[in-house]
Design a protein around this nucleic acid. Structure first.
Length: 466
RNA sequence: GCUCCCUUCGUCUAGUGGCCCAGGACACUGCCCUCUCAAGGCGGGAACACGAGUUCGAGUCUCGUAGGGAGCACCA
């Protein structure tokens, strides 16, 4: 039987980090085993689901490169099917109509709590065999077994056993005519032939009751794998207030998809001491059975390290499109100025993100906005600065315009004036950028372009003499 | 309250009874390299939650304790 996994988000917000990792693990598990990956949108909560959220999730999945083989399927389009299955269950005596109001249910829960018991349905209609009637409170409840226990072997958590006496008769069809989550998922997973249910471990508690529904429906129970949560730096639940949670926020912050994927795959899973994984390696090596049981914390600094790793090692051309997206967002006009690919080469081992790179790239696309006074005083207002700038200017006017020849020019200036590189590079750096920090001097000059570089040297000479 | 789950350096993790006075990575830190900033190279400090038990031997098995988490909805 071919392996089929699915990612089933509810469209009530953006794709967040935890969801992205779940999607990644589902995707990897299906890819490694030559199976299929299905995307399903769980939108039965009509109040909270939105089309914008659906689009945001799809966009994020696409940006990450987690392509689905089937779907997206929408639960709202499968209402008739859920009705049909629920009716079958009622007809077979495995589910029944119940007519308590929400207030009555609430009172029931409070009474149970007061007695120190688990709040649950008291089973009033369980054996009353009431027939269908029009009633605003009409729901369908599943007749959960009252004896024995449910056992399953979770691929992450191990063996879990649950006494049926702990479970009550859950509502599978609400009074508003929509199925509930626990019912819809089971029907969907059966219909879609899902063999591996991989999801967050907040669903562990739902699993026994879902297994009972599988049994009632006479369906094969899939394998389950419940992933531990991802916490924030403080070990608290990830929340928008304390950290970036949306995948697309990470894009805006300048991370590349591969780095995020690599970070996520290592959060809760490992392969010996290996830290860096190409997509192919992830697919070949990942195994859901090797995932850790404990929750883990999201560490942006390690993500940043991985991001820089990919900025440094990826083919620069492959980063251009994403980098241009950031340049545009930073309000930079690239009509004039260096080729973005050259900027990437000059800056990639000096920044951790593409956002930072775009910020630093500004000095080559627009005039120097402000001069760092300390830099000017230290490197331009001294005995040798003017001579250095003059010498550089005349040689740069004629050399081939590439980093290597420019480097030769710098060395010639140093030799001619009998000065160390520090005395040569710093005045030129201030001339080019207005600051004392930038990439290697030959790249800094190269990126400015010959005309602009000479203009900036002239301006610096004027300043040095002024 | 009840049920279920979790617990190795600050963080992510390796470890499936002896190879572990616990290995790697991020972060931090010392030195080297160096035109600035980085990057890079070589070092350093840093952990088996606690207590019993099983065993010749326990991070690894069992049981308790403590701490953390999830769920107990006509939300997914």
């Amino acid at each position: 039987m071919t392996v089929r996994t699915r990612f089933a988000p509810s469209p009530t917000g953006f794709l967040h980090i935890g969801g992205a990792r779940t999607a990644l693990y589902c995707w990897l598990e299906s890819r490694r085993r030559g199976g299929e990956f299905i995307l399903r949108i769980e939108d039965t909560d009509r109040e909270r689901s939105t089309d914008e959220a659906v689009k945001a999730i799809l966009d994020a999945m696409h940006w990450l490169g987690l392509d689905a083989d089937e779907g997206p399927f929408y639960q709202t389009q499968r209402l008739e099917r859920y009705k049909q299955v629920a009716d079958e269950l009622v007809a077979a005596g495995k589910a029944y109509y119940a007519y308590e109001s929400k207030d009555e249910i609430e009172a029931m829960r409070e009474a149970a709590m007061a007695k120190g018991e688990k709040p649950r349905y008291n089973g009033y209609y369980r054996d009353r065999n009431e027939s269908f009637r029009e009633d605003p409170n009409r729901v369908i409840r599943f007749r959960n077994p009252s004896e024995g226990s449910v056992v399953f072997d979770d691929k992450v958590k191990g063996r879990i056993e649950w006494a049926n006496s702990e479970l009550d008769d859950l509502v599978i069809f609400r009074s508003d005519g929509w199925p509930t989550y626990n019912f819809a998922v089971v029907v969907d997973d059966i219909d879609m032939g899902i063999t591996e249910v991989i999801r967050g471990d907040d669903h562990v508690n739902n699993t026994p009751r879902q297994i009972n529904i599988y049994h009632a429906l006479g369906a094969q129970v899939p394998e389950f794998a419940h992933l531990p949560m991802i916490l924030d730096k403080e070990g608290k639940k990830l929340s928008k207030r304390t950290s970036a949670v949306s995948v697309m926020d990470y894009r805006a912050d300048g991370f590349v998809p591969h780095a995020l994927l690599n970070y996520l795959v290592r959060l809760g899973w490992s392969h010996g001491d290996q830290e860096i994984f190409s997509r192919e390696q992830m697919i070949a090596l990942f195994d859901i059975a090797d995932v850790n049981k404990a929750a883990s914390r999201f560490d942006t600094e390690k993500l940043a390290w991985l991001n820089q790793h990919y900025l440094k090692t990826d083919e620069p051309r492959s980063l251009v499109a994403e980098f241009e997206w950031h340049l545009e967002r930073a309000g930079i006009d690239t009509a004039h100025g260096p080729a973005p690919v050259d900027v990437i080469v000059a800056l990639r081992d000096r920044v951790h993100t593409l956002k930072e790179m775009a910020e630093r790239a500004k000095i080559w696309y627009a005039p120097i906005a402000e001069w760092d006074d300390k830099a000017v005083v230290k490197h331009l207002k001294n005995d040798s600065a003017v001579a250095v700038l003059d010498a550089a200017k005349s040689l740069l006017g004629a050399c081939e315009w590439k980093p290597e020849p420019i480097h030769q020019v710098i060395e010639q200036v140093a030799a001619k004036l009998e000065l160390g590189m520090g005395k040569i590079a710093q005045p030129l750096r201030v001339a080019m950028t207005g600051t004392q920090v930038s990439p290697s001097i030959e790249h800094t000059i190269y990126l400015a372009g010959r005309v602009e570089a000479l203009k900036r040297i002239d301006a610096a000479i004027a300043m040095a003499q002024g």
